[in-house]
Amino acid sequence: MGEAVMTTRRQADGAIVVDVRGTLDAATVDALRQALVSTLHSDRPLTMIVDLTFVTFMDSMGVGALVAGYNAARETGTRFVLRNPSEFVHRQLRVTGLADMFGLPAAAPGPQTYTP
């Protein structure tokens, strides 16, 4: 089981950015899910960006936490954006069939922001 560090900040345009570092697995996903859902319900931003640049591992529970965030964003009318998923994270989302839902291309290009 790994460790993850999450920080939340607001950009000048009002978007909320959740920076995630480390691993998303059974030991860490509850904190991510809670951060995403509670921020969406309390702040109701127009856009939530989840920056995955420094996520080194993600299992099915990590995928589930992102789906929970995506669903909560839809409920609040917030655009949910994944930023800079690593090749590993991108592959996990492709394998689970969720890459399309998150607006990811068929192959992981260099660092970019993807919007559904």
Rank of each mutant, 00 (worst) to 15 (best):
M1W: 01
M1V: 08
A4D: 13
T7D: 05
T8W: 04
T8C: 02
R9V: 07
R10D: 06
R10E: 11
Q11M: 04
A12C: 01
D13Y: 07
D13T: 08
A15F: 03
A15Y: 04
V17Y: 10
V18Q: 12
D19P: 01
D19R: 14
R21P: 00
R21G: 05
L24E: 11
D25K: 00
D25W: 00
D25Q: 05
A26W: 05
A27K: 00
A27Q: 12
T28Y: 09
T28W: 04
V29A: 10
V29F: 02
D30H: 08
D30Y: 00
D30M: 04
L32E: 07
L32Q: 13
R33L: 00
R33F: 00
R33G: 00
S38T: 15
T39P: 01
L40Q: 09
L40I: 05
P45D: 03
T47Y: 01
T47H: 06
I49A: 05
I49C: 03
V50T: 10
V50P: 13
D51N: 14
V55C: 07
T56E: 13
F57H: 13
M58C: 12
M58A: 10
D59H: 03
G62T: 14
G62R: 15
G64M: 07
G64Q: 06
A65G: 10
A65T: 12
L66H: 05
V67D: 08
A68Y: 08
A68L: 09
G69P: 10
Y70L: 03
Y70P: 13
Y70W: 13
Y70A: 08
N71Q: 08
A72Y: 02
A73Q: 10
R74N: 02
R74V: 10
R74G: 07
E75S: 15
E75H: 01
T76E: 13
T76N: 12
F80N: 08
V81Y: 11
L82K: 00
R83I: 04
N84T: 09
N84Y: 01
N84V: 03
P85T: 12
P85C: 12
S86D: 08
E87M: 04
E87V: 15
F88I: 13
F88M: 13
F88L: 13
V89I: 06
V95F: 01
V95K: 04
G97V: 08
L98F: 09
A99G: 15
A99W: 04
A99I: 09
M101Q: 12
F102C: 12
G103F: 02
L104P: 09
P105Q: 15
A106I: 11
A107R: 15
A107H: 10
A108Y: 03
A108K: 12
A108I: 02
P109K: 03
Q112S: 14
T113Q: 15
T113Y: 02
Y114L: 10
Y114W: 10
